[in-house]
Design a binder for these strands. Structure first.
Lengths: 251, 251
DNA sequence: GCCTCGTTCAAACGTTCGTTTTAATTTTAG
DNA sequence: CTAAAATTAAAACGAACGTTTGAACGAGGC
């Protein structure tokens, strides 16, 4: 019966290798034999320790998402405690949500950029078991942050906030999913551009740079003026009270 | 005279079905037998008409991306002509790039939302042949729009513009990839929120609504204030540092 | 010693994959 | 009309897939 008691390093080696290979090739294109071969364990070890391939993928995520979403909730708790019942600033909320994630990319013991890229790519996988798994893992944290954003932006229709949360998740996932995706479309390495220091092969620097660039973008999008709907039903109000509506970058 | 069952009928039926199934299941999880079965053609017809499965996927995209990127270039040509050598407004550039795409979602003869969702999901596929194919298909249009953005935002470092272009592509792809992805994370249907009229099953309305909400977000992100870099050894604000590294309490 | 039990191992299971083959059929052209 | 070419049909190919099997291994308690 597959029941783990001891902390066999076989189990962890499988998880580490699977995490990397799922990221590099995707779930379907990564075979059990690729995983067990790279991990130098027997082919049957995966089924013994995890049951089946689907369960292996779930476990790869469970061991990381547990930490991630726990810390996200704790970060939100801290903010709300020190706000003493008042509404939080949108920037605080985004920092707690996205910053916690991006900080995982700096810590190899938390999966580093490998896990972040895997997460970004897997969020678009259409397989049903993946979608339902993510839904259950994310349900609580998304609900808490949604409520926080509702309070932080009382003048913005809630549907609009959900849409923008969606947009932000997309921007983050693509940004995370790697330089790869960008290179596909732009044809260049981001790091090679505009006199920037060549990046050393260090996930810490990569993750920190990404965070520094992503957060302003997300905040700008979140606080953008509301769209004007071309429907007969009335005109929407303008921007939420926040400033920085027409701020041009630079200058 | 026999039926109009010409060869191109078989070819197009395969392409239409493959487009839909690749969108629903992803490339790897869609088998030739699923495609030929749903298209009601013989199994060998795919290999006869397209050569192999990879070439089929490429052809599915080629017939759409050709129109898309041609129109994107034409839209940019029009804008630059009427600007008479001057710089364009960022909103014009985004409208030409993303608006052209989103308008495909309103036109069933151009693939409609099915193709848009497929495109959004496929951009993250890690398979090498897909990446190189997209790189060649997108090379010209991306370069043109990049240059236009450089001129439109002369005070913004070019590396920053490339990053934000990346973020915008990500937000768009996720938004496009469907309500599915959002439902995974939020657990709700977007259309059910905040007193919005339930959407009728009409891709035209869906695509138009998406465009109206996405464009302000993208523009807000593109023009957000530039990030402050903490160049010397980490003197940034002390955010909730990594505490409680291995916590998975309750849940 | 022997027994137990969690783990590893080599081998094989049945299924499905993308592709090819061979023959029949339809379309095209002189 | 006839022959060649184009297209479809049915069956089979070998390879790879996820999974299962049953025996062997190795440490710990009696």
């Amino acid at each position: 019966m597959p029941e783990q008691k001891t902390n066999s390093d076989t189990r962890d080696r499988i998880l580490d290798v699977a995490e990397r290979l799922f990221m590099e090739n995707g779930y379907e294109a990564t075979s059990m034999r690729m995983i067990t071969g790279a991990a130098e364990v027997n082919l049957a070890a995966v089924n013994y320790h995890f049951g089946c391939k689907e369960a292996l993928l779930r476990e790869v995520f469970r061991r990381r998402l547990g930490w991630l979403n726990d810390n996200r909730l704790q970060a939100l708790d801290r903010l709300e405690a020190q706000a003493g019942g008042g509404a939080l600033k949108p920037s605080q909320i985004l920092e707690a949500f996205f910053g916690t994630l991006l900080r995982m990319g700096e810590d190899k013991t938390l999966g580093g950029m490998t896990f972040l890229r895997l997460l970004g790519r897997t969020l678009t996988e259409p397989a049903e078991f993946i979608r339902t798994f993510f839904a259950s893992e994310y349900a609580e944290v998304i609900d808490r942050y949604k409520q926080a954003l509702y309070r932080a932006l009382p003048d913005v229709p809630q549907a609009e906030i959900v849409w923008r949360l969606h947009f932000m998740l997309g921007a983050m996932s693509y940004a995370i999913a790697g330089t790869d995706v960008l290179r596909v479309v732009t044809g260049v390495e981001v790091d090679d551009l505009a006199g920037e220091r060549p990046v050393q092969d260090d996930d810490t620097i990569r993750a920190r740079r990404l965070a520094q660039r992503l957060m302003p973008f997300l905040l700008g999008g979140l606080r953008a003026p509301l769209p004007q709907f071309d429907e007969p039903a009335g005109t929407q109000q303008e921007l939420p009270s926040k400033a920085a509506k027409e701020s041009r970058p630079g200058t």
